[in-house]
């Protein structure tokens, strides 16, 4: 595993909440002390900020008339019969005569 992969794995853990930012920084300092720290720190901070900005984007409600027309359509749409369980492909043992 090269340094870049290790950095990505740590970013993964940070984004998924497996480590907090302080722990990330400590690990970062330990592992990447020899690297061009300023550049990588900027890189990590700006990726983190980008993700934070994405988290801030809000979902929007569909227009009211769209909701109403969907509910009307549902009321006059029949449901399909449940699909049968797919065969496993295994052969049944033959009955002995």
């Amino acid at each position: 595993m090269n340094e870049f992969d290790r950095l990505w794995n740590m970013m993964d853990d940070l984004m998924e909440g497996l480590i907090d930012f302080d722990a990330f920084e400590r690990e970062f300092d330990r592992q990447f002390a020899q690297m061009e720290q300023d550049f990588y720190r900027e890189f990590v901070n700006t990726v983190r900020k980008t993700v934070e900005l994405c988290h801030g984007i809000e979902c929007c409600q569909p227009p009211e008339e769209l909701h109403i027309s969907l509910c009307r359509a549902i009321e006059c749409t029949p449901q399909c019969a449940p699909t049968k369980k797919a065969k496993s492909g295994r052969h049944k043992p033959r009955k002995k005569p």
Partner: peptide
């Protein structure tokens, strides 16, 4: 988006028994 939204939910309704 409106067309797809309707289509997706109608498909879900039709197939919910599966």
């Amino acid at each position: 988006a409106a067309d797809l939204f309707q289509e997706a939910f109608i498909s879900a309704w039709r197939n919910i028994r599966s």
